[in-house]
Design a protein around this nucleic acid. Structure first.
Lengths: 247, 247
DNA sequence: TTTAATTAATTTGCTTGACAAATATTATAT
DNA sequence: ATATAATATTTGTCAAGCAAATTAATTAAA
C-alpha cells in the first residue's frame, strides 16, 4: 500500500491558519468586503481553538488585510487596503531598515535624486493646479521665520510629495514616498545642524516656477541643483563628524 | 481641582499594546536582538491577560519586527528585519493593490520603464561579473524550448532583478523589485497569450551585451525597445479583449 | 575525573470555558 | 407609528492550565 506523506509541519498553527486565509485572499477566492466565517466556525473548520484563530486573524489585521466589527451584523471582513495603509506599513519597515544602517546615506541620496528626476519630468507635463497650490502653500510656510525646525522639515516632505503627486503615476508615487520618508530623518539632521533654510526655499521656488511653466529641463535642473546642494551639506557634516572623532 | 483627561481610547487593548511595543522599537529604545520581557511579565506590566499580549505580539510578528523561541533561553526578541523579509511583505501588499486594480497596466509599465532606465544607467557603470553571469544563465534557460511558460516568466523576473542588482544601489533595488513583482502577473498574461519568447530573449541578449561592454546608451536603448514591445503587446491584448466584449 | 544520560526548569504554543462589550434585530409599550 | 426595551449575535478579554521545546543542572556510569 502506498502512503502519501504530508509535508512535515513545524510552523505554528496560528501561522499556518493565517497563511491559508491569506492565500484565499491573494488568489482571489475571497474578494474585498467578503465576510469570513465567525471565529467559532473558523475554529471548527481548522480544528483549532478560538484564541489560535484570533492570533492568526491578528497577523492579517496587522497588514490591514482584514477588519473586524463586533455585533450581530459584525464579523471579520476582507479589507480593501488603501494605498495609504500599505504605504504606512512600508514606511515603518523602511525607516527601520534605515535606522539599522541597511542603506547608506549616499545610496539614499542617489536613489532620491534619480527617482525625483523621473517624477519631475512627468510632473512638468501633467501637473495640475492642486499640486502647484500645495507647493505654493508649503513654500509660504517655509519662508516664515517663526516655523520650528520640525515643522520646516515636515513642510519640506509635503513639498516633495507634491512633486511625486504631480507625476500622476501612483506607482511612481508609491516608490517616491518611500524614499522621501526614508530620507526624512537624515534631512532633519541637515536642517538641525546646518540651518540653511534660505537656500532650500530658493530652490523650491525655482522648481515651482519651472513646473508652472511646464519647463521639464529647468525643473530637472533645479532638482539636480538641490540634490547636489544636499549632498554637499552631508559631506560637510560627515567631515565634521570624522574631525570630531579623530580629535 | 484640575483634571487631566486621558484621550478617549476605543482601540482594542491588543492593538494599543502592539503600538506601544512597536514605538519602543522604532524610536530605538529597543534595538535589534534585544529581548522583550516574557509574555507573563508583559501581561503584568500592561495589566492585560496573556492572550491579549500574544495577539499584540502576533501583530508585530506578522511584520517580522519580532521573533519568538520556546525554551529557557527562549523568549521574544527584536528582529533585525532583512531586506528580503521587508520586501516579501511589501510584495504581497503590492500584489494585492494590483489585483484590486489600484494601479493600471499603463501606469505600471511606465513606472517600470522609468525605473529600469535609472537602474540600467548605473548598471552600465557598476555591473560586476556575478550579475552578468546570472543574466547569461537566465537567457540560457529562456532559450530552452522545453521550459514551461511559468518557468519562463520566473526566469524573466530573475533577469530583470539582476539588472536592478547590477545598479549596486539597494534603495533602487528595493523600489525596482516592487515594480517587477507587481508586473509579474501581467507579464504572465502576455507570455501565456502572445507566446512571443524569441523577441524577448533577443532583447535580453542585447541588454546583456550592452552591459558587458559598459555601453550605457545602448543598454538604455535596449530596455526602451523591450518596454515598447511589451506595451504594444498589451495594447493588442487590450484590443482583443475589447473586441471580444463588443462582439 | 570525565562523559553521557536524565531530570528539572523556563518559556512559548495551545486549549477550554466563560464573561464583557458592542451592535443590529425584534418585541413591546406608549 | 414611534420610541424604548429586551434579545441575540459576534468580537474582545480574561483565567487557569497543560503541552512542547529547549536549555541548564544533576546524576550516574565509565
Amino acid at each position: 500500500m502506498t502512503v502519501r506523506y504530508e509535508p512535515l509541519v513545524t510552523e505554528s498553527l496560528a501561522k499556518q491558519v493565517a497563511e491559508k486565509i491569506r492565500g484565499s485572499i491573494t488568489d482571489g477566492r475571497l474578494k474585498a468586503d467578503d465576510q469570513l466565517p465567525t471565529e467559532e466556525e473558523l475554529a471548527q473548520q481548522f480544528q483549532v481553538s478560538r484564541p489560535t484563530i484570533r492570533e492568526a486573524l491578528k497577523r492579517l489585521a496587522a497588514q490591514s488585510l482584514i477588519r473586524s466589527r463586533r455585533g450581530p451584523s459584525g464579523g471579520t471582513f476582507v479589507n480593501r487596503p488603501s494605498q495609504e495603509e500599505v504605504r504606512s506599513n512600508l514606511t515603518t519597515a523602511t525607516a527601520l531598515l534605515v535606522s539599522l544602517g541597511e542603506f547608506s546615506i549616499p545610496e539614499i541620496l542617489e536613489a532620491r535624486q534619480d527617482l525625483e528626476l523621473v517624477c519631475i519630468r512627468h510632473a512638468a507635463q501633467r501637473r495640475e493646479e492642486p499640486e502647484l497650490a500645495v507647493m505654493r502653500e508649503e513654500i509660504e510656510i517655509q519662508e516664515r521665520s517663526t516655523v520650528s525646525d520640525t515643522d520646516f522639515c515636515a513642510s519640506d516632505v509635503r513639498f516633495h510629495r507634491a512633486i511625486a503627486d504631480a507625476s500622476h503615476n501612483p506607482v511612481l508615487q508609491f516608490a517616491m514616498f518611500t524614499v522621501i520618508e526614508a530620507l526624512q530623518p537624515i534631512e532633519n539632521m541637515v536642517v538641525f545642524h546646518v540651518r540653511q533654510r534660505d537656500m532650500i526655499v530658493k530652490q523650491h521656488k525655482k522648481i515651482l516656477a519651472a513646473l508652472s511653466e511646464r519647463k521639464a529641463g529647468a525643473a530637472a535642473q533645479a532638482v539636480t541643483e538641490q540634490m547636489e546642494y544636499l549632498r554637499a551639506r552631508f559631506d560637510e557634516a560627515h567631515e565634521l563628524r570624522r574631525a570630531r572623532i579623530s580629535a
